[in-house]
Design a protein around this nucleic acid. Structure first.
Lengths: 352, 352
DNA sequence: CTGAAAGCGCTTACAG
DNA sequence: CTGAAAGCGCTTACAG
């Protein structure tokens, strides 16, 4: 007969040292039974459950996921590959995905690719998650390309969230930057502006900002507005082209400037005031994102990207896919944002 | 004799399906040998290594960390418990820790506590990391208290980074908010301000902002400056007390306002301009953080918190602790930031 | 330098 | 409803 009294884990009672066997002994049942009540879904008599739960609590048992994952050959762990935590848009996305995941009963672990090192190094994060044999992969970084994921597509469901996805094997949930740009452009055109500067970062710098900018320019033109497209390829230098805008405005050649991000728009403001340009009397400006803390106080006219919707939808899809791989035909969904009025956009006082 | 030719994993050649045995067969060595070259540190003949590496590459083998972790009873996985990804300071910290970890050869996985749900739920993230049997734990959230970590302290090294730590069993690397506040206060006093408003959020709202604010006020007073301490306990409402500041300034009762964060300072600016207060002519303002994108363009006088230093030091300590548990006596280190001059701070034009 | 074998802590048919 | 036992994919003494 087994000894009574609380059996100690080999680590002298430290919770991480207690194994399922210890729990089983304390509860006087088999290891299999402990496992069953832990799984929660199988039939165990009420009184046995009670015994086991008491033992579980008493010992502070923390299941070893390495062992359970290995034995079960599956896991409810979802890996999130996150692009750049410094970017507020990704920070918010991260937070929202965590909330949704917890609601959906998924265990989220996040990994960030180290971009500062060699090309090989960039994939280390992916391999870490794959090595953990996560049950699902959410990708929100352009650093990992569809090509890198291809070999694993039939072993693990992948949904890319917040980045444009075109691969037929990867479910995509992202922002509709074309519509976003169009929405903003419509507002500016409707306000009566007939000549507008649009800042457009190169594609390689930021896919999202590039698409937004191009969409703004295109829709402005479609409405008969004259567009001064200001391309920029200066990485990390959000104030590139600010002098050009100041000059155009001072010369009365534009009445509005559209920026592909709030950060850029806000960064421009000191330039304007230094040049004596009043906003919006002399120049209207618009941003894009709507997620910066305090941006409402600044009162910038912008568009709020639907981070919550994208996170929620992406996580739901992930949960469905993990439950049943065939449950969803792969689609590429896009969500448009909502215009946020602000003090910085008004009708032009004079015609250029 | 084993069959020659590329053996397929059971998943029909999908990389995640190939096991170490498959690699061993292809390379015509034992599983133990494959494991040895993977570990990298033991003696394997050059030609054997060559064979194994070829097989590894050919099959696209991704080691199963569940299995290796279980067998090795240890792991070079480091778990990071991150407070709030939406907060730029934590986003930057996350990014820096990742960089340092990769440099130190540590595998970082991050978990975010879900704060939106019940108290039990908050600890889910911790249990996830513990369940994974991480080799080390970096904690940068106040949601998890020292008390929650206590039971695990002798099983896994814990360093708390970016949050004040007082527990004698937990290594702490954080910001020296007292000195930060003092540095800013000295600048303001030195500029000649004799009556200053200081916004102080309650402790429960933000430990860091509370300490900064109190330190500012204390050091101002120590220098004989009159302090209007404006307490605030409005969560998430960074503009609380802005009207009070505008009024005090308009009445000529203060010449400067100190905010415990850049976000708060920036949020105040529209209030000032609406009220016709010029900055810094009518009112100087200072923030704190120095990490907001675009804050340099705004030109706010602030203090840059040493995120990189804290991340680097915290990660180094973690690496040392994982290498040898006794290598470091537990300490609580603090790093002060550096003043960042800006357009918003000048000497007062008139004396109140 | 290399291999056979035990064992890590679980889950899950398979019996009963 | 419950237990004995096989097995998940690795690592690591132990021999040689």
């Amino acid at each position: 007969m087994t000894e009574l009294g609380p059996p100690k884990g080999r680590n002298g009672g430290s919770p991480l040292g207690v194994r399922m066997d210890d729990v089983a002994q304390l509860a006087q049942v088999s290891r299999a039974t402990v496992s069953r009540v832990l799984m929660g879904n199988v039939s165990v008599s009420a009184k046995t459950q009670e015994k086991v739960n008491r033992a579980l609590r008493e010992l502070g048992y923390v299941p070893n996921m390495m062992a359970s994952g290995l034995a079960a050959r599956s896991s409810d762990l979802v890996g999130l590959l996150l692009r750049d935590p410094r970017n507020p848009a990704y920070g918010l996305l991260h937070s929202e995905i965590q909330n949704e995941a917890s609601r959906a009963g998924l265990q989220l672990i996040t990994v960030v690719p180290t971009v500062t090192r060699g090309a090989e190094e960039e994939l280390a994060g992916l391999r870490r998650l794959l090595g953990l044999r996560v049950g699902g992969l959410m990708v929100s970084t352009g650093v990992i390309k569809a090509h890198d994921l291809e070999p694993f597509l039939d072993s693990v469901p992948v949904v890319s969230v917040g980045r444009v996805e075109e691969h037929p094997g990867i479910y995509g949930v992202s922002y509709d930057e074309d519509t976003n740009g169009a929405i903003l452009a419509d507002r500016v055109a409707t306000a009566g502006h007939r000549s507008v500067a649009v800042v457009v970062p190169v594609f390689s710098l930021s896919t999202a900002e590039n698409r937004r900018g191009l969409a703004m320019a295109a829709h402005l033109r479609a409405r008969g507005v004259e567009v001064h497209q200001l391309d920029t390829d200066l990485f990390g230098d959000s104030v590139d082209r600010c002098e050009d805008i100041v000059r155009l405005a001072s010369e009365g050649r534009i009445t509005a400037a559209m920026f592909p991000s709030d950060t850029r728009a806000i960064s421009f403001m000191p330039y304007a005031s230094e040049a004596g340009l009043r906003i919006p009397e002399d120049l209207s400006i618009t941003g894009c994102d709507g997620i910066l803390m305090g941006s409402e106080q600044i009162g910038i006219a912008t568009l709020r990207i639907p981070v919550h919707e994208v996170a929620a939808r992406g996580t739901t899809v992930m949960a469905d896919l993990m439950r049943d791989r065939g449950s969803a035909t792969i689609r590429h969904e896009r969500f448009a944002g909502v215009f946020v009025p602000g003090r910085t956009l008004a009708s032009p006082a004079r015609v250029p």
